[in-house]
Amino acid sequence: MTATARKIAVLFDNAMRFGMRYVDPGADHYEQRYRERVIKQLHRRAAEFGFALQPAQGVS
């Protein structure tokens, strides 16, 4: 909760000081970042066990 409050405070401070506008990147942006993070963690865990992940054919 503290990290979120700080992030909001920094965004507000920058908007007031520099006249910046906040543009919400949208839920799709956050979903894509989450997916990338999960895939990266899976690759790292597989490597710890001596495996290498391969993308499935025909699946994006």
Rank of each mutant, 00 (worst) to 15 (best):
Ala3Ile: 09
Gly19Cys: 06
Asn14Leu: 09
Phe18Pro: 02
Arg37His: 12
Tyr34Lys: 00
Val23Ile: 06
Gly26Lys: 03
Ile39Pro: 02
Phe12Asn: 13
Arg6Phe: 04
Phe18Gln: 10
Lys40Val: 11
Ala52Trp: 02
Thr4Cys: 14
Tyr34Pro: 01
Gln41Asp: 09
Arg37Phe: 15
Gln57Glu: 15
Arg37Ile: 15
Phe18Trp: 05
Ile8Val: 14
Gln32Val: 05
Gly50Ser: 01
Met20Phe: 14
Ala47Lys: 11
Phe51Lys: 00
Gly19Tyr: 01
Arg33Trp: 12
Ala5Phe: 11
Tyr22Trp: 02
Asp28Gln: 14
Val38Trp: 05
Gln54Thr: 02
Ala3Trp: 13
Asp28Met: 05
Ala56Phe: 13
Glu36Trp: 07
Val38Ser: 10
Val23Asn: 10
Arg45Ser: 12
Asp13Lys: 04
Val23Glu: 13
Val10Tyr: 14
Lys7Phe: 08
Arg21Gln: 13
Arg17Tyr: 03
Ile8Asp: 09
Phe51Pro: 09
Arg21Cys: 08
Lys7Met: 07
Gln41Asn: 09
Asp28Cys: 00
Gln57Val: 15
Lys40Met: 10
Met16Cys: 03
Ile39Cys: 09
Ala15Glu: 13
Val59Pro: 01
Arg33Tyr: 07
Gln54Tyr: 13
Phe49Thr: 06
Thr2Ala: 15
Phe18Lys: 11
Leu11Phe: 08
Val38Gly: 08
Val38Asn: 02
Pro25Gly: 05
Arg35Gln: 08
Lys40Phe: 05
Val38Thr: 08
Gln57Asn: 10
Gly19His: 03
Ala47His: 03
Met16Ala: 11
Lys40Trp: 08
Arg35Gly: 00
Asp28Ala: 04
Tyr22Leu: 07
Arg6His: 04
Tyr22Met: 04
Arg35Ala: 08
Ala15Cys: 02
Val38Met: 11
Arg6Trp: 02
Ala52Ser: 12
Ile39Val: 11
Val23Lys: 05
Arg44Val: 06
Ala3Gln: 14
Phe49Arg: 07
Lys40Asp: 09
Met1Gly: 14
Leu53Ala: 03
Glu48Met: 11
Thr4Trp: 11
Ile8Cys: 02
Ala56Ile: 03
Phe49Asn: 10
Asp24Cys: 12
Leu53Lys: 00
Leu53Arg: 01
Asp13His: 14
Arg35Cys: 02
Met20Gly: 06
Asp24Thr: 06
Asp24Val: 13
Met20Arg: 15
Pro55Arg: 03
Phe18Thr: 05
Ala46Gly: 05
Ile8Tyr: 07
Ala15Ser: 04
Lys7Trp: 09
Gly19Val: 14
Ala56Thr: 12
Phe51Asp: 06
Tyr34Ala: 13
